[in-house]
Design a protein around this nucleic acid. Structure first.
Length: 296
DNA sequence: GGCCAGGACTATG
DNA sequence: CATAGTCATGGC
């Protein structure tokens, strides 16, 4: 019988605030939230362990929902995924210290204390989500992601709960552009998705390789890929590769969040944003993630 | 009904 | 290097 796994969490952690973030779209199908309970499955070899993530003071709990026992390997992978998903290995105290002195961040951070930069541990998923989200509103982006996942991914059910597994690169690499454009994405995005899938499926791109150097070399590599510009590269550096200094500075959502917090008439210029972000050095990703929550 | 959205590519000066 | 046009659909 599978046991409950207990993962210690840092002091700067509030499960309910993170759950609120995860609840932001009804079109999310890669995990489910039912009656305040979080359900998830991940690919693990040929298996797809299904589990609930819950919380008690000082810990996250992983509750396996499979009848067959998890191997030690499966247990390790699920725990590693959950740690990464909730960004538990980052010490946020320096961020909170600087944010408390920052007029733009102070109120947001105190209101969302304990929010982590919820990650997208899978590189292909992170890249696809970035590409899909380019230049469209977030609600539509979720619609497109759902269509993409439910067209090419795999559904896993346990009892009355289901989750979808994100499509594997090999599932996408062989598609025709029209197969994806039929979901009402632009032809270019369909090309980009297939291109990225091929790179990963062929072993020319992977998370481990990107993490070999520093953030600059990873950014350079990502931007060299067709369809990945500075915004998408930094989005992936932030949500997948976990660099707290990644900064999607071109992000329209960030611009609108700054505009709202400072009650500006118009969106801030690039120069103004750079000024405002001087004090965030090293924590730009967290500043951005918190500011996003002002709007979404 | 019009503006804009968690951009990137391409062509042009 | 900087700017403008293009993609294309949907949310609000």
């Amino acid at each position: 019988m599978n046991r409950t796994i207990r993962i210690p969490v840092p002091a700067e952690f509030d499960f309910s605030v993170n759950l609120d973030y995860l609840s932001r779209s009804p079109d999310e199908s890669l995990y489910r939230i039912r009656d305040g309970r979080l359900f998830k499955t991940i690919p693990c070899g040929s298996r797809s362990p299904f589990f609930e993530v819950a919380a008690e003071p000082g810990s996250l709990l992983v509750l396996p929902l499979d009848d067959e026992p998890w191997s030690p390997e499966t247990e390790r992978e699920v725990v590693a995924y959950t740690r990464d998903w909730f960004d538990l290995d980052n010490d946020l105290s320096p961020f909170y210290e600087l944010a408390g002195r920052d007029p733009l961040l102070r109120d947001v951070v105190s209101r969302l204390y304990g929010l982590r930069n919820m990650g997208i541990p899978d590189l292909f998923e992170a890249l696809c989500w970035g590409i899909i989200g380019q230049q469209i509103n977030l609600a539509f982006a979720y619609t497109l992601k759902r269509r993409f996942v439910e067209a090419f991914g795999r559904q896993v059910r346990r009892g009355d709960v289901d989750c979808w597994l994100f499509p594997e690169p090999r599932d996408i690499a062989g598609l025709d552009v029209g197969d994806i454009a039929a979901l009402k994405m632009t032809t270019k995005k369909a090309e980009y998705l297939i291109g990225v899938a091929r790179l990963i499926a062929d072993g020319e791109l992977g998370r481990a390789v990107l993490l070999e150097g520093d953030i600059r070399s990873a950014e350079k590599r990502l931007v060299s890929i067709r369809g990945i510009g500075p915004w998408t590269a930094n989005y992936v550096l932030m949500r997948c590769l976990r660099y707290p200094s990644a900064f999607p500075i071109d992000d329209v959502g960030l611009h609108n969040a700054i505009k709202a917090v400072l009650r500006m008439e118009q969106k801030p210029t690039a120069a103004r944003i750079k000024e405002l972000a001087v004090g965030w050095r090293g924590w730009e990703a967290y500043a951005t993630f918190y500011l996003w929550r002002v709007l979404y």
